[in-house]
Design a protein around this nucleic acid. Structure first.
Length: 571
RNA sequence: CGGGGCGUAGCGCAGUCUGGUUAGCGCACUUGACUGGGGGUCAAGGGGUCGAUGGUUCGAAUCCAUUCGCCCCGACCA
């Protein structure tokens, strides 16, 4: 492609409302343009990247034995009404009416539609297993679209749905998808973790999220530094921390802490480590008020706390409630003498001689010890934290932020039972199809890739996602330069290499800046100066060192570049 | 839905508090000249319903009311 003929509008300044790296760079480098909140047009370069991702996804889905279908985006309400999701989805569903007043919506996901197809077409165990996938635009009226392509209201997604005769067979389908997903994320060059997550309301028995590690991610994960273990902090297990403090601490002692409330303030005031504190938080759980105690350096995990208490959710008590139950201002709550239920995290219970609030404004207690000075149900209610021992291998865990880019799970018969999608088994018995579903956010992956691969000058695409393999910068318009550019371009295109030729009459500086911004992995420069020096310059975008450029004779450039593209996984 | 902020040229912004020249600056764009290996210089231009509606006023980008849109934090999130 010739740059001079391409729609490739790069800009120096991004709109002020673009805050994350991928959002800024997608706009600046001319990949997308915003149409509305969470709605984007893809320009030619953006489409090329989407197609690259799709290609890898298709290849791996096909390799895993799945077949592609195309389902409608415009859906009559009846299908989601059948499974009750018409109401369950709430405001997230984009609803509309046709001219006759009939209810419709735009598909946020397609379980019902595919299940309908299955109940019509899959009747016998002989038809199974089946795995069908679709790559298409989906819609969700997100409460808050953000960060460009990371969270959109209209987005491109791949969803695959598997149908099996039994749970065991579904496990096999699931496993095949898990491997396919690994291959996809590996090929696309992602730093990612496969994590176990809260499988959510839809009753999935087995599920895994594919989280791409990026700073702007919305989820927090705990991942082992040594083994494969990784989990969303919401569900990550913690291992017991060693006991702290003397075996037989002195008797409780009351100290004045007139203005110190937070762990930080009190710990520096008393010269004690946060680990020796018993952080006490008042929670409202249903109709009861409980005191949750964790070690000073830990945080309460409200999901675990709610589960431990057997309630749906808990929330922190307000200042008035705290005053009422502790008799003190916020900041001075403690388990000793607390009137009400006390829940102690396992790792707080193992602190002997700790520091806790005195339930009296302006005072804390020293040498507080579980069992001796206060009672309380010992449970695991804290969140995993950086440096915790891995539950599977004991190496330290590290916390990351991640973007959920894929989610696979076994649905079981949730949809098939509701929708009457059954098959006849060998014994002529009617049984519901056992389903699995496997999603990948294709457009989200594009953004996530940029979050992982960029520098101050622009994008640094991995070869497998790059809109072009080679960015050829032509400097000057001398006949020998033009000829050399044409010769190399032809040779590369014959070899299947995708080349963007910057033939514009821009100044060299502008061309280099645009090339950096666009982020094509291989950079070639041809100018009178390079030809004089003996050929063309080849440089990799991911190597910032100017000395890393290699000078290759024109006649050998095509072969050298083709080899590089292949080596980097582009052909 | 709660909290905060922003709507002025394609983009980034000033002007609004304290109403009053022809609404301004940088980038981008057009024309010309010079220039030519990291966003070059000079000159001349084009481009605005000041988000919308209503009001106050002799006079509104500026004050008041309503409304729409967008962004950020939180809540929410197969």
């Amino acid at each position: 492609m010739r740059y001079s003929r391409a729609l490739l509008p790069t800009v120096k300044e991004a709109p002020a409302d673009a805050t994350t790296a991928s959002h800024v760079l997608l706009l600046r480098a001319g990949y997308v343009r915003r149409i509305g909140a969470g709605i984007y047009s893809f320009l030619p370069l953006g489409v090329r990247v989407l197609r690259k991702v799709e290609r890898v996804v298709r290849e791996e889905m096909d390799r895993a034995g799945a077949e592609e279908v195309l389902l409608p985006a415009l859906l009559p309400a009846e299908y989601f009404q059948e499974t009750d999701r018409w109401t369950q989805f709430g405001d997230t569903l984009l609803r509309l009416k046709d001219r006759k007043g009939g209810d419709y919506h735009l598909g946020p996901t397609h379980e019902e539609i595919i299940t309908d197809l299955a109940r019509r077409e899959l009747h016998s165990y002989r038809d199974l297993p089946k795995n069908l996938y679709q790559i298409q635009t989906k819609f969700r009226d997100e409460p808050r679209p953000r960060a460009g392509l990371l969270r959109c209201r209209e987005f491109l997604m791949k969803d695959a749905y598997s149908f099996d005769v039994s749970e065991e067979a579904a496990q096999k389908s699931y496993e095949a998808m898990r491997l396919a997903y690994r291959r996809i994320f590996d090929r696309l060059g992602f730093d990612y973790r496969m994590v176990s997550a809260d499988s959510g309301a839809m009753g999935g028995s087995t599920s895994a999220e594919f989280q791409v590690l990026v700073q702007s991610g919305e989820d927090i994960l705990a991942a082992c530094s040594a083994c494969e273990y990784a989990a969303n902090v919401e569900v990550a297990e913690t291992t017991a921390t060693p006991e702290r403090g003397p075996a037989e601490p002195p008797a409780v002692e009351r100290v004045a802490t007139p203005t110190q409330r937070t762990i930080e303030e009190v710990s520096s005031f008393l010269g004690k480590a946060p680990e020796d504190f018993l952080k006490s938080l008042v929670y409202v759980a249903g109709d009861q008020t409980v005191l949750a105690v964790v070690r000073g350096d830990h945080e309460v995990n409200e999901i675990k706390l709610a589960r431990a208490l057997g309630v749906d959710e808990v929330h922190l008590a307000g200042p008035e409630e705290v005053r009422r139950v502790t008799g003190a201002e916020v900041g001075f709550a403690g388990p000793v003498g607390f009137q009400g239920r006390v829940v102690v995290d396992r790792d707080a219970a193992s602190v002997k001689g700790g520091v806790a609030g005195a339930n009296e404004s302006g005072f804390h207690l020293l040498h507080v010890t579980h069992g001796r000075d206060y009672q309380g149900d010992v449970m695991i209610i804290r969140a995993a934290t950086d440096g915790d021992a891995c539950p599977s291998c004991a190496a330290p865990l590290k916390l990351y932020r991640g973007v959920e880019a894929g989610h696979i799970f076994i649905l079981g018969t949730h949809y098939s039972a509701k929708m009457g999608a059954t098959f006849l088994d060998e014994k002529q018995e009617k049984r519901p199809l056992v389903m699995g579903c496997y999603g990948i956010g294709v457009s989200r992956l594009v953004a996530a890739a940029i979050e992982q691969h960029h520098d101050k000058d622009g994008i640094r695409w991995p070869m497998s996602m790059a809109p072009y393999h080679v960015h050829l910068t032509q400097l000057g318009a001398e006949p020998e330069v033009v000829e050399a550019v044409a010769e190399l371009t032809q040779a590369l295109e014959r070899a299947g290499v995708e080349v963007l030729v910057d033939d514009r009459s821009e100044r060299p500086g502008a061309k280099f800046k645009d090339a950096d911004l666009i982020g094509v992995p291989l950079r070639v420069t041809i100018g009178a100066r390079s030809l004089q020096a003996g050929g063309v310059e080849i440089k990799r975008r991911d190597n910032p060192d100017p000395k890393s450029a290699e000078l290759v004779p024109l006649a050998e450039a095509s072969a050298r570049l083709t080899a590089l593209v292949r080596e980097l996984g582009g052909l």
